[in-house]
Every structure is written in structure tokens, then in C-alpha cells.
Design a protein around this nucleic acid. Structure first.
Lengths: 145, 145
DNA sequence: TTTGTTGCAAAACGTTTGCAGCCTC
DNA sequence: GAGGCTGCAAACGTTTTGCAACAAA
């Protein structure tokens, strides 16, 4: 999927202005990098992948990821003991995961009925932006052990 | 909700036997403690709450939580940077959470339509045991800031 | 000019690991 | 008796923090 990167930059700019945060080049460099990445990544991987283009510190990567999280531009997963996994939120349509409780393997799947049921949910005091579903169980490989 | 604790113990015993693990008193003490706790707890809290009754090390708590996870008797949540949260799985019916991406507040809710949609999902190579749903957004308090 | 943000390194935190002794099986 | 399990403490890896220098507003 092709995303208009100017849209994303605008959303972030608006967020920064509204919250009185500074529009630093590091923040936009990180945002742009994230939107070139496919699938899950962690802070370290993002940090390393940037070193050739724009030098940012790991601390700034973490700081910016938090801002992007609040701005709704990034999704955070905490699958297991490992590091937190992130992914861009705009243009990412799959939010359903099956997780093997033995080997930890994560797979994504789509399901229209589930999607519809969740997206039609409304709260009185909560404005929802996105969701993540984890179905736990045992994968075929592990059930044979 | 009142749960027959002998049922839970039987499930764990069966699991241990089937996997050729030993039935140590520590493991059963931890299991019994967990089933007296309501709501979420982390490994440290569980460890501390046991010190008066039965002395187990934190390492054993972690080890046993892993076994209980595999046995399907405990559910693990990794909400945010903090420590992992656990809860008993039998007798715990609420699996849906709304999470504020600003303040991190987690609330649980029930929804029959969502529950039905998720529980009717079947996989070809995956035997599901339970699920957790997280709907992210901004709570009323944070949206006013 | 003010003060939020950065990079760096050190610190903090939850979790895992190594090992000697113990206790299930 | 053998080997899995325990407690303890040290080690680990991710994330956070403190601080001086920098730069956006």
C-alpha cells in the first residue's frame, strides 16, 4: 500500500503543535524511516537502520516512538519477554494475531466478522483509534511434542 | 465466582505428569495462591504476597508462571513498559480491554458480539485456548488536556 | 533568550541464568 | 541413586534517566 507521506507528516506536525512540542529534524527523520519499514520492528532495529542516513541516539528513538504512539501513528506490541515491537499504524490493516503459548510464534490473520464486531464497539468515555487481538493456543508443531 | 480448586489442581497435575515435570510443593503453593488473587498481578507482587505462607524464590515464581501459562491456567498481559501482568484463566471471563495511549489506564469490558465472533474463529493448524483484545484510544480525561 | 530536546553514558528495571545443594521420582 | 528443581546472587538486555550542550521558538 502506498501512503501519502505528506499526510503522515501533517498529522505528526499537528500533534506536535497542539501539544506544544518542538518540530525537530530528528523526529521527522524517525517518522519517515518508520513509514518505509514493513512489518514489526523494535527500537534497536529502527535505530540501527537509521545510522547511515541520519544520526539519532537510541534515547531519541524511544522518545519519538512515545510521541508517535500518542499521535496514533505507531502501534506497539509487547509479545513476550523480548523487546517491544512497533509498526506503523496507517496502512497497516492486520490487527489479529495468533500466538503459540509454547514456542511464542506469532502469525497474523484477517477476519471480517471479528473486525466488524470490534470496530462497531462504542464507548461512552473513550475515543478508540485502533485495536490488537491476540488469540492464544498451541500451534501444530508444538502440539506434537 | 467460586471455583473448585481441586479441578485446577487436577489440571496442573495432569499437565506436569504428561510433560514429565516434577510435582513440587512450591509449584502447587504458587498455583493455589494465584487462584486466591483477583484481577491482575505481576511476578513480584505474587512473590511478596506468598512470603508469609510459603517461602519460594522469585526465580521459582517465574518458572512456575511459565508452566501455568503452558498449562492454560494463567494468562499473561504485557500492557506497557512495566512488568508483565498475569491473571488466573479459569473463572476469569473478561478478556476485552480498553487502553488509553496517553495515561495507560486499562479498563475491562464485556461484549457478546465480539466474544462470539472471536470464539467462533477456527484455524487449520492452531488449537486456540483463549484470547485477549486491546482497544486503544484516548480516555475522556486525557482528551481534555 | 528561553527552555524543550538531544546525545551520551550510567542507572534502573524486570527477567534469566549458573551453580551447589535438595528432593521427587 | 539420578537428575530435575530450588534458592541465591550475579548477569543480562531493554528502557529510562541525568546532565551538559544545542537549537527551536
Amino acid at each position: 500500500m502506498k501512503e501519502e507521506s505528506s499526510t503522515i507528516i501533517n498529522i505528526f506536525t499537528e500533534y506536535l503543535v497542539r501539544h506544544k512540542h518542538r518540530k525537530t529534524p530528528e523526529r521527522f527523520a524517525i517518522l519517515e524511516k518508520i513509514y518505509t519499514l514493513e512489518g514489526h520492528f523494535d527500537a534497536e532495529k529502527l535505530y540501527e537502520s537509521m545510522q547511515n542516513e541520519y544520526r539519532v541516539s537510541l534515547a531519541t528513538v524511544y522518545n519519538t516512538l512515545d510521541l508517535l504512539l500518542e499521535a496514533g501513528l505507531v502501534i506497539k506490541h509487547q509479545f513476550d519477554g523480548l523487546s517491544a515491537q512497533y509498526e506503523k499504524s496507517i496502512g497497516a490493516n492486520i490487527h489479529n494475531h495468533s500466538v503459540c503459548i509454547v514456542c511464542g510464534k506469532v502469525k497474523e490473520f484477517t477476519d471480517k466478522k471479528i473486525k466488524k464486531a470490534i470496530q462497531s464497539k462504542e464507548f461512552a468515555n473513550f475515543q478508540s483509534t485502533h485495536y490488537s487481538l491476540y488469540i492464544y493456543g498451541v500451534c501444530k508443531k508444538c502440539s506434537k511434542k
